[in-house]
């Protein structure tokens, strides 16, 4: 276990270093002088030079890279040019909303995906199975912003069941917050349930053919006891992997969904940063979100051992 953990951890550190290097390169492929771009056309050469010094852009590239890694390790991701405050603080302020949105969307995707996938596998080849396959393919083809706009128009504007946009008043309670998040979570979670449905179905089909499932049936266990206790538990590993991937996809999807629903979360911050060319924010978002992705994947790997006692690291 310790040997595996340290190997896995070393691999993670290598990937994170590569991630940091990619972000470093992206931030420096900007055509022209980033300092001049950030300050706009009204800046004097002296202002530009001052910002270059402040950002360390006047140093040679290898020195810049070392300084950059040192900053990352001390959680210093620089200051937002536009908001004039540390990037980490700006992201943390908005992280709560995005966590709720992502969490709810994952819950929707899993609560639809897993049971429907199991059902399709159990009723393999029937009309139900075919319908599930068709619907999940359709769901995977839906642009989430289009679903979002349609939901807003019909369920919020016309029927008035949900708020049209935003996240409620600053002092709003949990209930009101959740009310604001239901439509965005559906718009984000629904298209992403498709992948979970398909993986659950395939994984269950593999397992349902196994001898131990036949044995369980032969000793007279009820059909659903076999499906849940014997088959599903063993089918869970690939499903967990895809749920991990879904969480990461949903964090990316939140960028679009928050824009559609006017939610002031991390995604919204990123889109504004892109439109204003606020590079430190973009750079910080890339680092934090990809770091989360790597951590989630590692957590999923470790969960395997919990789900399947045969897995020993």
């Amino acid at each position: 276990m310790t040997a595996y953990l340290s190997r896995r951890f070393a691999g993670m550190v290598v990937v994170m270093l590569m991630v940091a290097a990619i972000v470093f390169v992206i931030a420096r492929v900007v055509p022209g002088d980033p300092a001049a771009v950030m300050l706009g056309s009204n800046a004097t050469p002296a202002d530009v030079a001052a910002l270059r010094t402040q950002l360390g852009l006047d140093q040679p590239l290898p020195v810049q890279f070392v300084l950059y890694i040192r900053d990352i390790l001390s959680f210093n991701l620089g200051n937002s040019i536009f908001l004039n405050r540390p990037v980490v603080d700006a992201m943390l302020d908005r992280a709560e909303l995005t966590s709720w949105l992502t969490g709810l969307s994952v819950a929707i995707a899993v609560l639809i995906g897993v049971p429907v996938g199991v059902l399709a596998a159990v009723r393999r080849g029937t009309l139900l199975d075919q319908a599930v396959t068709a619907v999940s393919m359709l769901a995977a083809s839906l642009p989430s912003f289009w679903v979002g706009l349609t939901l807003i128009e019909y369920l919020a504007v016309r029927l008035g069941w949900f708020p049209v946009a935003g996240y409620g008043n600053p002092g709003a309670g949990l209930g009101e917050r959740l009310h604001h998040l239901i439509l965005p979570a559906v718009a984000l979670g629904l298209p992403n349930s498709a992948l979970i449905i398909r993986f659950t179905r395939t994984s269950m089909l593999d397992v349902l053919h196994e001898d131990y499932v036949r044995t369980a049936r032969a000793k007279g266990l009820g059909p659903w006891a076999v499906i849940i206790k014997h088959a599903f538990r063993n089918a869970l590993i690939p499903v967990l992997t895809v749920i991990g991937l879904t969480i990461a996809t949903l964090i990316g999807g939140a960028i679009v969904t928050e824009t559609v629903f006017g939610l002031p979360g991390v995604g919204n911050l990123i889109v504004s940063a892109v439109l204003r060319r606020d590079y430190p924010v973009i750079q910080g978002a890339l680092l934090i979100i990809s770091g989360l992705y790597v951590l989630i994947n590692m957590a999923v790997d470790l969960l395997y051992a919990v789900v399947d006692p045969r897995v020993r690291y």
Binding site: V15, I26, T249, I270, A273, Y279, Y293
Partner: peptide
């Protein structure tokens, strides 16, 4: 692996912010 650690849309808009 590192490139895939970025959500598709995030990597794309970050690149486009520069380009």
């Amino acid at each position: 692996d590192a490139l895939m650690a970025f959500p598709d849309i995030l990597l794309a808009i970050a690149l486009l912010a520069g380009l």
